[in-house]
Computed example of a mutant assay.
Amino acid sequence: MTYCKNGTISNGIRAIQVIALLAGVLLVGSNAFVLTPILSEVAQGLATEPYRIAWSISAFGAATAISALTLSGLIDRAPAGWVLGSAALLLGLAQASSGSSQNWIWLCLSQAVAGMAVGVLLPGAYATTVATAPKGREASRLGIVLTGWALSLVLTVPLAAFIAERIGWRMVYALLAGLSVLTALGLVAGLHGVRGGVVLRTPPWRALRLPGVARLLLVMFTYMTAFYGSFAFFGEGMRQAFSLSAEGVGTFVVAYGLGFGLVGIGLGIVAPKITHRYILLVLFGIAISYAYWHFALGVRLVALTAALIWGALNQLGLNALVVSLNQYAAEARGTVMGLNTAVTYSAVFAGPLVMSPTYAVAGFTSVSALAAVLIVIGVLLSLKAE
């Protein structure tokens, strides 16, 4: 994707771009995570069982993957502000519909529409962040934008639980819808004059044939499967290890989010050069962090520190892989980021599925050990990525 920019971009416009793109990622993370702490309240409000409400998460994930594969290439051809702004507005409408749901089927359909929007918004945000960054500052700018994931964990999820308990779960989706509309306006204004320079759409199968792309996507799949498989049992693992309440488990999630977010801010100051050796070092570090959980569960402070480091290293890993994919993508960044989003949401499905039998038999430390093995597989795959 080659971006055409009108005139010189001022620092103020650059700041608006970064804030709007960060808000877009925050919206995606919020919609993905917000239902977990309020699942029982939503089920009670819709007079159904919690597992039916959980189906809306599956609907969201499936729609996201399909949308990412079929629609994300729009960012390579159309004005970036209008594509991302429209996706954020559609997400806002889906959130408003979710908050207005009268039954679980309505909620599932609303979240499927949200997934359609996210399948464009998330890969588009990643591609636009890298493409509009000053040369040599791609990792720096992406680090700031990726902090939206940390904010969704540290701020949105606890706030959603607080609001649902005191005002009601429908207000959670109403506030998210309002934030989506504001973000849509920010994306349209901040990315005015920024457009993809590709006339013809690059189909996913052709993007996969770009040098290095397919192998890096395999690395991303092992990386994300390790993460989502581990994170699915992270809270329960901490609860069992330290006999914690739900609030106590939340401190570990916050520690992870802080590590992820602080390193994102650090990357905004320091702009590392993303090389093959850099990626290998980061992946090795992540593998060690997974393996270390075997020793960290004896002392609560040590486990909190391990969660903080885990979050920090995952920021470095995600940042490095996304920047590298964009470097290989040439003029098909939107399509490649769409493939990346499809791979990510496939890992959301595969991770817990792969890790569930291991957790049932041997607990969280064995899950983290398996995650370390998956990361090592990713390292071996990345050795041939150049």
Score class of each variant (00 low, 15 high):
S40C: 03
R137S: 08
D76S: 06
A96C: 02
A347W: 15
L258Q: 12
R52D: 01
R195M: 03
I286P: 11
T147R: 00
M220S: 12
A241S: 11
A78L: 13
M171A: 10
V188Q: 02
L69I: 11
R14C: 05
A207C: 04
R52M: 07
A184C: 02
A312Y: 05
A88L: 03
L90K: 03
A23C: 14
P158C: 00
F242W: 06
P37S: 06
L90C: 11
E247V: 04
T365N: 06
T225L: 09
G250Q: 12
A307H: 08
S245N: 07
L216S: 08
A68M: 04
A54P: 03
R14G: 08
L313M: 15
S100Y: 08
T36L: 15
A78P: 06
L182R: 07
Y256R: 11
L380I: 00
K5T: 08
G119F: 00
I274H: 02
G61T: 14
L71R: 03
G212I: 06
T2V: 12
A131P: 06
L353A: 15
F233P: 14
I19E: 10
L370S: 04
K384G: 07
G351W: 15
Q44G: 07
L176R: 02
Q315S: 15
G73S: 12
A125G: 05
F233H: 08
I167T: 10
M355R: 13
A287P: 09
V219A: 13
I265Q: 14
M355E: 12
A62P: 05
E331K: 15
A189K: 14
S58N: 13
I16F: 08
A342Q: 13
F364M: 05
A62T: 05
T275R: 14
V42A: 00
R277A: 09
I144V: 15
F33K: 04
Q95M: 11
L175M: 07
I13T: 15
Y228S: 11
V157E: 05
L380H: 00
V113T: 09
Y359R: 05
I265A: 14
L339T: 13
G24A: 01
P357Y: 04
S152A: 10
S72H: 10
E41T: 04
N314E: 11
G235H: 06
T225N: 10
S10E: 09
L22Q: 02
Y173F: 15
S56C: 02
Y223K: 12
H294N: 15
G92R: 05
V83K: 07
N319S: 13
G248N: 09
A65L: 10
A303N: 03
I66W: 04
V343Y: 12
A371K: 01
A271F: 12
S230T: 10
F242E: 05
S140K: 04
R137M: 07
N319W: 12
A32P: 00
S289E: 12
A112P: 07
L109S: 10
R195E: 09
A96E: 09
S86A: 15
A96D: 05
Y173S: 00
T48D: 08
P50E: 10
W310K: 11
G363W: 00
E247L: 09
E386V: 01
G317W: 06
V42L: 01
S40V: 13
K384S: 04
Q102N: 11
G378S: 05
P134Y: 02
V322K: 09
A15H: 10
S110F: 01
R201V: 09
